[in-house]
Design a protein around this nucleic acid. Structure first.
Length: 434
RNA sequence: UCCUCGAUAGCUCAAUGGCAGAGCGGGUGGCUGUUAACCACUAGGUUCCAGGUUCGAGUCCUGGUCGAGGAGCCA
């Protein structure tokens, strides 16, 4: 007798049958003798139509008392209807409230300010746009993982609590670690991934990373997720090819599976359809010349500013590799350029449409003496890197890797104005709640 | 850390130094196809805090708190 519980995403398989939907009421309209109940169950959205004559009087009256975001079991018959955005609606036959709120839902139908929305992030996640972003984020992560798995990569996760420093001494969160002194939240898993690459060849780590920099921009979080592949016997060029293949695979998968979500987000699909290998390449030196010809006052030897990066990416319709930056603006572990001792074999991959850096990668310095020299030049604590230096003592090897910022990729693909919407619980300099 | 802007009804925002307003949300009533439904009526205010100028301050000045946008740094 009981109608089967069906997920909204599956209702097409139940046309003209009575089903039960378990979910929440995200909007309600009424025309006197018809209630329109907008339902959400996490798998989709559907409209329930309750006609006064078709249900018992008390059920029709009960529907009037529902507040937004009431949790419900709704029974009804699935009908194809071209007036419904999803193609289907539910002709309601029964209604059982699970919990009906006793006060108004804070998030209304009209616009809210970002401060209010961030304070209500736990409720904001219920909204349609945030559903879309989280689905795309999920797709991006699954695409990356399956891409790497298909290519024989081994997932070797790195620690979050570390004793050694990562890329530099600034921007580290520290905490007391028993009697041994300070521990630090990892800024990167890369050094551990290098050790894993020496053990297993093709590896990656994927996890949250932490930067205590007081950055206050639309592209920074203090906690963000990074996918970091590291490959033994890959050089600088192999490394860029891998990045190009990974990013194009992710975009291809999103376009295959997430067009409804991108449509909700009003994302223009044309720029994404152009994201097909090969991407563009430009050297750091060429990039500086180009920027100067476009009016930037950047000097050779400086790192790019935010405006520079935006200006540069606006010149291209696909992702752009910028290669071989000056050694002095990059991390100690990057391999010195064989012909130019002032440069390193590295690349930044810049997303188009002004989004900028989504990947930073490099060939790693595999020579023990050069690596030691750079650690000392940068004033880093040599003893913290002793285990890392062992990788150059015992079977050193050409190897390369990169870090891809998940939230930056999601923000770019979704066309978001700010990276904070690309992660469920953003952590920024002035916000750690909820 | 620096620069800029902002804070008024539950929310989003108006208001020449001169009566505190609208839309949404809430309440009451109406409507058999609504899509941020619509229509009528209605309730709702310590204008962020502390001082100051003025006959009179939401508005001007000083200090503070909180937030946003941007810079630097980076993924």
């Amino acid at each position: 007798m009981a109608a089967p519980w069906v997920e909204i995403r599956r209702v097409a398989d139940f046309e003209n049958r009575e089903v039960t939907i378990k979910g929440w009421l995200f909007n309600k309209r009424s025309s006197g003798k018809i209630h329109f109940l907008q339902l959400r169950d996490g798998t989709g959205f559907i409209q329930g139509v309750m006609v006064k004559q078709a249900v018992p009087e008390e059920v029709f009256e009960l529907a009037k008392t529902l507040w937004l975001e009431a949790s419900l079991e709704v029974t009804g018959v699935v009908r194809a209807d071209e007036r419904a955005p999803s193609g289907f609606e539910l002709t309601v036959t029964g209604l059982r409230p699970i919990q009906n709120p006793s006060e108004e839902y804070p998030i209304g139908k009209k616009d809210h300010g970002i401060d209010f929305l961030m304070d209500h992030r736990h409720l904001w996640l219920r909204s349609r746009g945030q559903h879309a972003v989280m689905r795309v984020r999920d797709q991006v992560i699954w695409s990356a993982r399956s891409f790497l798995r298909d290519r024989g990569f081994l997932l070797v996760d790195s620690p979050i609590l570390t004793g050694a420093v990562g890329e530099g001494a600034s921007g580290l969160f520290d905490l007391d670690y028993f009697d041994t002194g300070k521990a630090f939240l990892a800024q990167t898993g890369q050094l551990y991934a290098e050790a894993a690459a020496a053990a297993y060849g093709k590896v990656y780590c994927f996890g949250p990373t932490f930067r205590a920099e007081k950055s206050k921009t639309r592209r920074h979080l203090t906690e963000f997720w990074m996918i970091e592949p590291e490959v033994a016997f890959y050089d600088h060029h192999d490394n860029m090819k891998l990045q190009e293949d990974l990013v194009s695979a992710i975009v291809r998968d999103v376009l295959e599976n997430c067009v409804p979500q991108l449509t909700i987000l009003e994302r223009d699909l044309e720029p994404l359809r152009k994201v097909v290998a090969p991407f563009y390449h430009i050297s750091y030196d060429e990039a500086v010349d180009k920027l100067r010809s476009l009016g930037s006052d950047i000097q050779h030897g400086e790192d790019f500013g935010n405006d520079d990066e935006t200006l540069l990416t606006q010149q291209y319709d696909k992702p752009l590799f910028v290669e071989c930056y000056p050694k002095k603006v990059k991390a100690f572990y990057m391999k010195e350029h064989p012909d130019r001792s002032d440069l390193v074999l590295c690349d930044d991959l810049l997303a188009p449409e002004g989004y900028g850096e989504i990947i930073g990668g490099s060939q790693r310095e595999d020579d023990l003496d050069r690596l030691l020299t750079r650690i000392r030049e940068q004033g880093l604590p040599e003893e913290s890197y002793s285990w890392y230096l062992d990788l150059r003592r015992y079977g050193s090897f050409v190897h390369s890797g990169f870090g891809m910022g998940v939230e930056r990729v999601v923000a770019w693909i979704c066309g978001l104005q700010h990276i904070r919407e690309a992660i469920p619980w953003p952590r920024t300099i002035y916000r750690i709640h909820p």
